[in-house]
C-alpha cells in the first residue's frame, strides 16, 4: 500500500484579484522507502500539495481532492485532533530557511524536547538522552553542548541539521523536505543531502524532496514528478526522466541546464512553445 496517495488534488486561494488556482488536478503517491522528487519552477505549485497534506494551507485556501490518504487514513475527513496526532509524528516536514524555521527565543535542546514531549511518553531524562542521540545521528559536532545553543549561535547548515533532528525525532514514516538545501552553500548542501539519504536508507521512511534544482533531483530521487503552473507534466523514474523525457516542458528544463549546453546558446523554455517568461 502506498504511504501517501494524492488523487486529483486542486487547491485555490482567495486573493484580492479573485480566485487563484495554485494546483490543478494533481495526482501522485509515495511508497515507503522511496524518494520522490517534486520538481518545478516558482509558481508551479510544488509546495502547495504538501502544505495541503500537512493541513498548513492559509485561511484563504480551498482544496478538493478525489483522494488524500496517508496509510489508508483519509486526511480530508479526518478530525483535527487525529490529524495533529499524525502530523509531526508520522509525517514531518523541513523547510527552506533553516534559521527562520527555528524559534529564536528557545535553545535547540528545548525545541527538540518539546517535539518529543508532544508525541512520546518519555521521561525528562530519556528525552534529553534521545535529543543528544538525535543530534549525533544528524552529524552535529559536540551534540551535548549544542543542546544549550540558540539558533543564532549556529550556522545555516547546523540549523538545518537541528531541523532534521526534530523532524526525525518521532521516527516519521514520511519526511517532506521543501527545498531543504536552497539557502545553503554547495559544500553544505552536499552534506545535508547525504545526511537525508542516509537517514532515509536506514529508517526506510518515505521522502518527498521538493526542489527546483534538476541536479539535486538527479542526485537524490528514485522517482520524479515534474510540475508546471499547477499541473503535473510528467511522472517517471529518475533515469528514464533524464534519459528520455516525454513531456516538452521536461525536455526544455533539461536542455536549459548549462551543463547540457551544446553550442553557444542555451535553449530556453520558450523555444519549446510553452508560453512566455511571465510564467517565471
Amino acid at each position: 500500500m502506498a504511504l501517501l496517495e494524492i488523487e486529483n488534488l486542486t487547491v485555490e486561494f482567495d486573493t484580492v484579484d479573485g480566485r487563484f488556482r495554485a494546483l490543478d488536478g494533481v495526482s501522485y503517491s509515495v511508497d515507503p522507502g522511496e524518494v520522490l522528487a517534486v520538481v518545478g519552477e516558482s509558481g508551479s505549485g510544488k509546495s502547495v500539495a504538501m502544505l495541503a497534506v500537512m493541513g498548513l494551507l492559509a485561511n484563504n485556501g480551498h482544496l478538493w481532492a478525489d483522494k488524500l490518504e496517508f496509510e489508508g487514513y483519509d486526511l480530508l475527513t479526518m478530525s483535527a485532533k487525529k490529524r495533529r496526532e499524525i502530523i509531526g509524528k508520522d509525517i514531518s516536514m523541513i523547510f527552506q530557511e533553516p534559521i527562520a524555521s527555528l524559534n529564536p527565543c528557545f535553545t535547540v535542546g528545548a525545541q527538540i524536547d518539546e517535539t518529543l514531549k508532544e508525541h512520546t511518553k518519555m521521561s525528562r531524562g530519556e528525552r534529553k538522552t534521545r535529543a543528544i542521540e538525535l543530534l549525533d545521528s544528524v552529524g552535529m559536532p559536540e551534540s551535548a553542548k549544542a543542546l544549550k545553543k540558540y539558533p543564532h549561535q549556529m550556522s545555516g547548515g547546523q540549523c538545518q541539521r537541528v531541523m532534521i533532528a526534530m523532524a526525525i525525532a518521532c521516527k516519521p514514516k514520511l519526511l517532506i523536505a521543501d527545498e531543504p538545501t536552497t539557502a545553503l552553500d554547495v559544500t553544505i548542501q552536499k552534506q545535508i543531502l547525504d545526511l537525508l539519504l542516509d537517514l532515509q536508507h536506514e529508517s526506510g521512511m518515505g521522502l518527498i524532496m521538493i526542489t527546483h534544482d534538476m541536479a539535486v533531483v538527479a542526485e537524490t530521487a528514485d522517482r520524479v514528478v515534474v510540475q508546471y503552473k499547477g499541473k503535473k507534466m510528467e511522472e517517471a523514474d529518475v533515469l528514464s526522466l533524464f534519459e528520455s523525457p516525454k513531456n516538452p516542458y521536461t525536455k526544455a528544463l533539461l536542455s536549459a541546464l548549462p551543463e547540457n549546453a551544446t553550442g553557444d546558446r542555451l535553449p530556453t523554455v520558450s523555444d519549446f512553445h510553452l508560453g512566455d517568461e511571465g510564467a517565471a
Binding site: K190, L193, M214, A215
Partner: peptide, 22 residues
C-alpha cells in the same frame, strides 16, 4: 576539489552510477 565533488550533477552517467551504488 571539495567544491567540485559537492556540486550536484545532472548527467545520466552520474545517475546510473548512483543507482548502481545504492
Amino acid at each position: 576539489q571539495t567544491l567540485f565533488n559537492a556540486t550536484p550533477q545532472a548527467d545520466i552517467a552520474h545517475i546510473k552510477a548512483r543507482l548502481a551504488a545504492s
